[in-house]
Design a binder for these strands. Structure first.
Length: 267
DNA sequence: AATGGGACCTGCGCGC
DNA sequence: TGCGCGCAGGTCCCAT
């Protein structure tokens, strides 16, 4: 699933490839992906505009066009944003650039969304977002957990709490820190929170360096898979031996989400 | 306040 | 081998 490292990868790669380019044509194949405005208005506003800047906030990718106009992309579960063709019939929305290259928004499950807005920071779900995990120091990170009764794993994934962390990196960080995913957040000791912080930051950075994790449909903009996948230690490793202690990795539904952890190493 | 379940959607894995 | 069922997943919304 595209989480912070995957969206950050897309942001960096798109910045290198399409910054300053002009959008010549827009083809909307799956209407449902474009939220709030009609395909006609969307097209008429986007066509002819230059790409001025590419940003990321949490799992959201933001393309700044001319005239204070922003394209907002959320890939949700199965979305991808690539400069090569979509797999099969997964093409959702296609942006043709002035040099005739195609930026494709592909989405098999059609949960993704594209918006066009003049002030992205005012979007309610962006306004409500918690801090960026890579911008927090240890002290600020620890403070977030004060008085939180929720289980730590669902809490880490909550975008209002912390922006950009999803199912994969929440689990990997907790395994790294040796903390059980069901621990009540405000009962976790200071030293353990420090570990979670350190693990989360280093895992996110390493995943960005390797251009993301492709357990599902996520791809780099050239269509290649992310290269962090082989470094996953618990995710999708049910019944396989823990890399630390050989205890079989357990899978449980926690907060309604599949969660993998080592019942021996994580307490 | 926090948790749980449903809705959205469809490819794919599994069981038969 | 082929079919059909139901899971998975991020987020929002509603109910408890």
């Amino acid at each position: 699933m595209p989480e912070l490292p995957e969206v950050e990868t897309i942001k960096r790669q798109l910045t290198r490839e399409i910054l300053g380019k002009k959008i010549k044509e827009v083809i909307i194949i799956k209407k449902k992906l474009v939220k709030e405005i009609s395909p006609q208005i969307f097209k008429s506003k986007v066509v002819g505009k230059f790409i001025k800047e590419i940003l990321r906030r949490g799992k959201v990718l933001i393309i700044k066009l001319e005239e204070r106009l922003f394209l907002i992309f959320h890939l949700r579960i199965s979305g991808s944003l690539i400069l090569s063709n979509c797999k099969e019939d997964f093409a959702g929305v296609v942006f043709r650039l002035a040099d005739d290259r195609l930026l494709n928004f592909c989405d098999a499950r059609v949960f993704g969304e594209i918006r066009l807005i003049d002030d992205w920071q005012e979007l309610p779900f962006i306004k409500a977002m918690g801090p960026e995990p890579l911008d927090l120091n240890k002290k600020q990170f620890i403070k977030l957990f004060e008085g939180k009764k929720a289980k730590v794993k669902p809490l880490l994934m909550e975008q209002k709490f912390l922006a950009g962390v999803g199912n994969i990196y929440a689990q990997e960080s907790l395994f790294c820190a040796g903390v059980h995913p069901e621990r009540r957040a405000d009962k976790i000791k200071r030293g353990e929170l420090e570990k979670i912080h350190h693990c989360l930051v280093s895992i996110l950075k390493e995943a960005i360096k390797r251009k993301g994790t492709s357990v599902d449909t996520y791809r780099q903009i050239n269509g290649n898979k992310g290269k962090y996948t082989p470094f996953l230690k618990v995710y999708q490793r049910e019944n396989r031996p823990c890399l630390n202690c050989k205890t079989p990795i357990k899978r449980e539904l926690i907060g309604g989400r599949g969660t993998y952890f080592c019942p021996h190493c994580q307490r």
